[in-house]
Design a protein around this nucleic acid. Structure first.
Length: 439
DNA sequence: TATCCACAGGAAATCAGGGTGT
DNA sequence: ACACCCTGATTTCCTGTGGATA
């Protein structure tokens, strides 16, 4: 039995923590400068892109309609930041009727209906269109009326971020077609679509009716930053974010170098620097040191995994649990998609009210887990024994157990200690021996 | 060399759950 | 109450396939 005294010995003293925190050295001056949403006064190494986009959009200053255009580039190459930066600049130079800017992240606002609703609600400034229920054409009609009524003779830029995600979905081309041709049905207001894409081959997926209107201008291509360029960006932000002398020599170069290795992602570099600062703060250090960066890097990786697993639907979590159990009970196991399907069904049947899934669905989940880097899945032909995927857990077993054990339904049914029926007989061992020879 | 396994993965259909206006 | 809408998850149906084996 746990006594009060025991309890006190192990409990975290929050009062002491806060006192120490306030007494401890101050690392950040303005943490916000390292956030992805922060728009700095200058954008290093993006002069070419800024010049091109400024050229295309300048006519909005006179109330003329700028053409639609696309921006390409990998994540963290400054596409969104550049557009936001320019929108501010245009507003500064506009005396009357500044243009409207409506940002839509197609990864979050992910369906045609919601895009229309989002645009409408943004202009009105409140939730006028419900999240579902109305026919799309009705909203489109309402929207057209709203443009002429509210925005009147100004220009409205519709910025579609991560447009590639929208295009791959059904109905994506249709909504783009509608958005790029809004002007044909407007009397006063004029709209212009700016598409931001992570994928260079976006055009392949676009309908010819849409390409013709998005093709009016050369697309703007954002190249990844190299380590030196990233360092420049970091210096600039660090000057705003940190107090003077807080950053140890070499920390910024290290952050830049690590991020450059991952296709020059500025967002990653900034995140790394911020996390390193937070690590230093927690350790009551007066300075951000290189060791804090390394620690931060590890934490980011781990956070990413944990967050991703928690955000998955239960069925996907069970699929992952199946991989975990197959690994746990037979370390040198050869795991195939068929095994995962069987174990998943076994697990699902142990949770009341949960449906078992089909092969097809499990196959998709396996692909998703592989894409997220949680497992390794390679398609392999075993000749007479068919074609399948050979799957391996790509995350530390212990970490996986810790994360999975925090999922309520997995915990309450004690699934992590359950030995699946498939593993109770000889079937898997026999198959394993055959497969091992073939691999 | 034809066969055949155990799936892979695309396309379309279906279902449940959120909503609408009349 | 009713017909209808939108979405996301899943099922159904389907064709394709690499290579050991008979």
């Amino acid at each position: 039995m746990l006594t009060n005294q025991d309890n006190n010995n192990y409990s975290f003293n929050i009062d002491k923590f806060y006192k120490n925190y306030l007494k401890g050295p101050k690392i950040f001056r303005n943490r916000e400068a390292l956030e992805p949403s922060f728009i700095p006064n200058e954008l290093p190494h993006r002069d070419n892109e800024i010049e091109k986009i400024a050229g295309i959009t300048a006519c909005a200053l006179n109330g003329d309609v700028p053409p639609n255009f696309l921006c390409y580039g990998m994540t963290g190459t400054g596409k969104t930041a550049t557009i936001r930066y320019l929108s501010q600049k245009i507003a500064q130079h506009c005396t009357a009727n500044p243009p409207w800017w409506i940002y839509i992240n197609c990864n979050i606002v992910s369906t045609p209906y919601r895009i229309l609703a989002h645009i409408y609600n943004t202009i009105v400034g409140k939730e006028k269109i419900p999240p579902t229920g109305l026919p799309k054409d009705i909203i489109l009609k309402k929207l057209l009326g709203l443009f002429d009524q509210t925005i009147k003779e100004s220009v409205c830029f519709l910025v579609l971020d991560e447009i590639d995600i929208l295009v791959e979905k059904k109905g994506g081309n249709e909504i783009l077609y509608n958005l790029t041709r809004l002007n044909e049905n407007l009397d006063l207001c004029r709209t212009s679509v700016i598409g931001i894409s992570n994928k260079l081959k976006l055009m392949q997926f676009l309908d010819s009716r849409v390409t013709s209107t998005l093709d009016e201008e050369e697309p703007i291509v954002f190249h990844p930053y190299n380590a030196n360029e990233l360092a420049d960006i970091l210096y600039l932000r660090a000057n705003i974010a940190f107090d003077e002398g807080v950053i140890e020599e070499g920390v910024i170069k290290l952050c830049a170098g690590l991020a450059a290795r991952e296709h020059g992602d500025a967002r990653k570099a900034l995140q790394l620097l911020r996390k390193a600062g937070e690590t230093a703060e927690r350790n009551q250090s007066r300075k951000v040191l290189e060791q804090h960066v390394h620690k931060a890097q590890k934490e980011i990786d781990k956070d990413h995994i944990v967050e991703y697993i928690f955000s998955m639907p239960l069925q996907a979590q069970l699929t992952l649990t199946a991989v975990y159990l197959l690994t746990k009970y037979n370390a040198d196991n050869v795991i195939t998609s068929g095994d995962i399907y069987e174990v998943h069904n076994d697990l699902a049947s142990r949770i009341p009210g949960l449906k078992q899934l089909t092969h097809r669905r499990i196959s998709d989940y396996i692909n998703e887990l592989a894409l997220a880097g949680l497992i390794n899945a390679n398609t392999k032909s075993m000749g007479h024994y068919g074609r399948t995927k050979i799957i391996k857990l790509d995350v530390d077993n212990e970490l996986m157990e810790r994360v999975l054990s925090r999922i309520t339904r997995i915990k309450t049914h004690d699934l992590l200690n359950y030995k699946p029926i498939l593993l109770q007989g000889d079937k898997v061992r026999v198959k394993n021996n055959v497969f091992k020879k073939l691999l």
